[in-house]
Amino acid sequence: METQRQTFLSRLFGARETGLVLIILALFLIMTFASPHFLTWTNMRAMTMAFSVEAIVVVGMTILLISGGIDLSVGSVTALAMVVAGLLFLNGMDPWLASLIAILVCAGVGAIMGFFVTYVGLHHFIVSLAAMVIARGLCLLGTGGRPLGLFELPENFKWIGIGSIGVIPVAIIIFVLFVAVFDFLLRRTTAFRLVYYTGSNEKAAAYSGIRTKRVIFLTTVLCSTLCGVAGIIYMARFGSAQPTFGVGMELNVIAAAVIGGASLSGGKGTILGAILGAILLSLVSSSLALLNVSVYWQDIIRGSILLAAVTFDHYLVKRQAMGGRA
């Protein structure tokens, strides 16, 4: 009994998620005292809305990072979803059908990247860099570089972006659903365990009878598909399709996942951790804004947080390796 409690406690305190929650709570406390505008319903709601859609992309990126991949195209693909759905809608298509097609187009982009990574054998980094540029080019080509105003979008469609159920915004409900479902899938299901095996040691996974190419292909497709979903929610919220949306999003998203415990070498990470990472980054941004810190400082501070998290992780792993090897 005693030992069981000890392992539970040591696991709780050993877990990265706990550390992040503590840091977030501390920041919360500090901000509550530092700014009267912080702990207000409006601010909380605005803050959650700000990262709730991007968090869906974080989910996709985290899964891809666990499998050992990476995707730089998430920002452009998110914009591509908006542009495709927006153009189809302006040409008279039902917005729901247009959205479905746009998400499928994003999945197609993922499939093309997956093909080049697994069957041609190129690196994720390069393939997604190319996809990032191409998808952005398509967005600009399709719109002539100007945002598409979608004022005619029906209310029931805009509801997914700006509506609420009771006092809770729909976008936040969607975000919580995605996070809860994918966190469970990743922790508990066989299909997603294969993602961990593949990322941890691709060759050992192949030597365990796992079809690793298929795993990598599918995680690449999943990440792009989730970008598509995010793009549609953004479109419903903004009531427009912006071809330049999401520039630099990939860095934010990768940073969140890595702060949450994912590793660029694969095999590690959780959805919960990554979301906490996203919350931390978002909390820092809005706190700095509330304290009237220059926008330029924000990037510097966020970059430093990323560096600190990775450095901390590095020493943690090193210490474990030393202590564990007796």
């Binding site: 961990y196 941890s200 040691n201 050992a204 192949a206 030597y207 365990s208 009878g209 095999g267």
Partner: peptide, 18 residues
Amino acid sequence: KGDGIFLDMPIAANVSAL
């Protein structure tokens, strides 16, 4: 180490991999 086991993963997850 190269292709037999998943070093960073728990023992239980290694045993169940096949």
